[in-house]
Computed example of a mutant assay.
Amino acid sequence: MTEPENRCRLVLIVPDIADADEQAKIVGDALKGGDVASVIVPQYGLNDGEFQKHAEKLVPIIQDSGAAALLAGDSRVVGRTKADGLHLTGPASEISEAIDKYADKLIVGGGNAADRHHALEIGEERPDYIFFGKLEGDIKPEAHSKNLALAEWWASMIEIPCIVMGGTDPASALAVAETGAEFVALRLAVFADAGRAPSVVAEVNALLDEKAPRFED
């Protein structure tokens, strides 16, 4: 019996697929593989209208699986598609504005915290979470060592949850979990071979069930 709430949980980052129906099917299949806390939907190169079409297909699928749908792009699309939140990739000032505007209505988190100073600036705005890494930062099998170090420091001091970008190897999720981070984000590790996405989600959950450290209540 899995109890993912007391260990690091999986966050999926939707892959860059031009066909909205294909993208939605691949994400929907992956979500059948096991526990996923939230799914981040980047805008990539889509214009706002195209991004809305993609989000309109993805948001209900994500929410029906029990995960939170977080859009990284045009904030107006969040309202139009009834997504759960807004993932921001800019500085603390951008997060501050979004929190002022949406704090009672949406999950607001993210940030581009490349060092401790910027992480603390973002933390002062009290986002729902901070993100270490870039949404397309999974360029090596392992998670970036700088992000792991930031997460370990953050998790030991700050109560705001953190999400850490993993690598292209699904096993990189465990290195993230070992920092004390609440969430690990995976993209290519899950979606590089779309047909295997559900089984990779299942494998990552099994790995975290077996080996991830448990949080104290």
Score class of each variant (00 low, 15 high):
Lys57Gln: 05
Ala55Glu: 01
Thr81Cys: 08
Pro91Trp: 00
Lys25Arg: 14
His144Phe: 12
Asp29Phe: 13
Ser96Pro: 15
Arg9Pro: 12
Val59Gly: 03
Lys101Ile: 13
Ala24Leu: 04
Asp21Phe: 11
Gly66Phe: 05
Ile107Gln: 02
Ala67Glu: 01
Leu12Gly: 07
Glu136Asn: 15
Gly110Tyr: 06
Val108Asn: 01
Val41Asn: 00
Glu124Leu: 14
Leu10Asn: 03
Gly123Cys: 07
Val14Cys: 06
Arg7Ser: 04
Gly90Lys: 12
Arg7Leu: 11
Val39Phe: 03
Leu58Cys: 04
Gly133Asn: 03
Val27Pro: 11
Glu136Ser: 14
Gly85Met: 10
Lys134Gln: 08
Ala69Asn: 04
Gly33Ala: 01
Leu88Arg: 06
Leu86Lys: 04
Val14Arg: 04
Val39Gln: 01
Thr81Pro: 07
Thr81Arg: 00
Gly66Asp: 01
Asp115Thr: 08
Tyr102Pro: 15
Leu88Gln: 05
Glu5Ile: 15
Glu5Met: 12
His144Glu: 06
Tyr129Met: 08
Ala92Cys: 06
Leu70Val: 13
Lys32His: 05
Phe132Asn: 03
Glu142Val: 13
Ala143Ile: 07
Leu86Tyr: 11
Lys134Tyr: 10
Gly109His: 07
Arg76Ile: 09
Phe51Ile: 00
Gln52Phe: 13
Leu135Asp: 00
Pro91Glu: 00
Leu12Cys: 07
Arg7Thr: 05
Asn147Ile: 10
Ile62Cys: 08
Gln63Met: 08
Gln23Ala: 04
Glu94Lys: 11
Phe51Gly: 00
His144Cys: 14
Glu121Met: 15
Val14Trp: 03
Gly123Ala: 05
Arg80Cys: 01
Asp64Tyr: 14
Gly109Met: 08
Leu86Arg: 03
Asp84Tyr: 15
Lys32Leu: 14
Pro60Glu: 00
Thr89Asp: 07
Pro42Cys: 08
Phe51Thr: 00
Gly49Asp: 03
Leu31Ser: 05
Gly34Met: 10
Gly49His: 09
Gln52Glu: 09
Glu56Tyr: 07
Leu31Gln: 05
Asp138Lys: 11
Val11Lys: 06
Gly45Ala: 13
Ala24Ile: 10
Ile139Asn: 06
Ala98Arg: 08
Lys25Phe: 12
Leu70Asp: 01
Asn47Leu: 09
Glu5Gln: 13
Lys101Cys: 14
Lys105Trp: 11
Ala55Lys: 02
Leu12Thr: 03
Lys53Met: 11
Gln23Asp: 01
Val41Phe: 02
Pro42Arg: 02
Val77Lys: 00
Gly73Gln: 01
Glu124Thr: 10
Glu3Tyr: 09
Asp21Leu: 13
Lys57Trp: 03
Tyr102Val: 15
Ser75Ala: 10
Gly73Tyr: 02
Val27Trp: 02
Val27Tyr: 04
Leu31Trp: 06
Ala83Val: 04
Tyr129Val: 13
His54Arg: 06
Ala37His: 13
Val78Arg: 00
Val59Ile: 06
Gly33Val: 06
Glu3Cys: 15
Ala24Met: 07
Ala114Pro: 10
Asp100Gln: 10
Gly123Val: 09
Gly79Ser: 09
Phe132Thr: 05
His118Gly: 06
Pro60Val: 02
Asp100Met: 09
Gly66Val: 12
Ala72Cys: 10
Gly66Cys: 13
Pro91Lys: 01
Glu121Ser: 12
Ser145Cys: 12
His118Phe: 08
Ile107Trp: 10
